[in-house]
Amino acid sequence: MAIYKLQINGRSYEADVEADTPLLWVLRDNLGLVGTKYGCGIAQCGACTVHVNGNAIRSCVYPVSAVGESKITTIEGLSEKGDHPVQLAWDEVDVPQCGYCQAGQIMTATALLQKNPNPNTEEIENAMNGNICRCGTYHRIREAVALAATKLK
């Protein structure tokens, strides 16, 4: 066990965990940030997606010891009031069904739009293809990403 100092959503946190603990479980079990979801544990479904220095990563396979000084953003830190353009687009398009995968979808989409503010359909699909939605809200996710792009302009 060791103490890790983490910069998450603009705040400092400390967690006393083993070095190989995935960031996902530090967020969920140690810090109470449960918006980031467990889905597969092997980086296949995207439910656990967070940002490390603005890049979308799968936190279920990202050991806490690799975080270092990096800045982490989770769904809870995407905006203060839940009014990030991507979150607003998700509401406007009425994307969620069960909703479990949507935090991961939103984090993947946000990272995409930060790098590519005008993605075409193919670019959206390429970015989002790693995120599974078992309810099948894919059409609305695609539509919401495109809508969010117009809101970010």
Partner: peptide, 18 residues
């Protein structure tokens, strides 16, 4: 629109695993 959208898109602890 789904009445729980805001809760879901902001990562509130809604699920059993949470």
């Amino acid at each position: 629109r789904n009445v729980d959208n805001h809760e879901m898109v902001t990562g509130k602890p809604l699920y059993g695993i949470d």
